[in-house]
Amino acid sequence: MATQSAFGFLIETIFNLYLMVILLRIWMQLVKADFYNPLSQFVVKATHPVIGPLRRVIPSLGSLDTASVLFAFAVACLKITVLLLMAGSQLSPQAIIIIGGLTVIKEAFNIVFWVLVIRAILSWVSQGYNPIEAALHQLTEPMLAPIRRVIPSLGGLDLSVLVLLIALQFFQVLLFQQIL
C-alpha cells in the first residue's frame, strides 16, 4: 500500500508540474511576456510538441490560446483518470470532466501563488538583471499595479504582493468551499 501511495505521489507531482508549465504558457501569452526570455523559451519548448499541432486545428479566441487551455484540461482529466486507475476506483466521465476542470483552476491558483512568492524572494536577494526575475515581473505586474495605486509602498516596503497573496487565498478558499 505504501508503494502505491509513493507512486501515486510521484505521478500526481509529474502531472501537476507539467500542468503548471502549460498554465504558465497560457499566462505568458495573455500578458505578452518576452518570447526570447529563457523561461519563456523553456515553457514553449516543453509544451510545443502537443500545443503546436493543436493550434493548427483549434483557433484562438482573441488573446486566449484555446488549444493550450484545452490541452491543460486534457492533462488534468488524464491525471485524474490515471490516479483513479491506480487506486482501482472508477468515476463517471462527467465526474472526471468536472474534477479535471477544478484541477485546472486549483493549479492556476497555485502557479500564481508560487510565481508571486518567488518574485518576492528574488526581489530581496537579486542584484542586477536576472532574466527569470524579468519574466516573473512581466507575469505579475498587471495584477500588482492596480493594488499599488490603492496601497502605496510604506517606507520602501511594497505590500502589493502580500495583499494579492491574501486575496488569492481568500478566493481559492471561497471558490472551493462553495463547490464542495
Rank of each mutant, 00 (worst) to 15 (best):
I58G: 14
D65H: 04
A76W: 11
V57F: 07
I51L: 11
G88W: 13
F73A: 10
L64N: 04
V69C: 11
C77G: 10
S63G: 07
I51P: 08
A76S: 14
K79Q: 15
D65I: 04
L83F: 04
V75S: 01
L83M: 12
T81N: 00
M86Y: 01
G52T: 05
R55N: 12
G52C: 04
S63M: 13
S60I: 07
L85W: 02
T66S: 11
A67I: 14
L83K: 06
A76P: 10
P53Q: 14
P59Y: 07
A67V: 08
F71V: 07
A76K: 08
G62Q: 06
L64W: 07
A87Y: 00
I80P: 12
T66R: 06
V82C: 10
S60T: 10
L84R: 06
V75Q: 00
L78Q: 04
A76H: 08
V69I: 12
V57S: 08
L83A: 01
A74P: 06
G62A: 09
V50Q: 05
L83C: 04
R56E: 15
S63W: 14
L70M: 14
L54R: 09
V69T: 07
G88D: 11
A87K: 09
S63P: 10
L83V: 03
L54W: 04
L61C: 15
V69E: 02
C77K: 02
L84W: 00
P53R: 14
V75D: 00
A72M: 03
P59Q: 05
V75L: 11
K79C: 01
I58F: 09
R55S: 14
P53Y: 12
I51V: 15
A87S: 08
A74D: 02
L84G: 09
G62Y: 02
L83Y: 02
A67G: 12
F73P: 09
G52V: 08
V57Q: 09
F71R: 09
S63A: 14
F73D: 08
A87G: 06
L61T: 15
T66A: 15
V69G: 03
R56G: 12
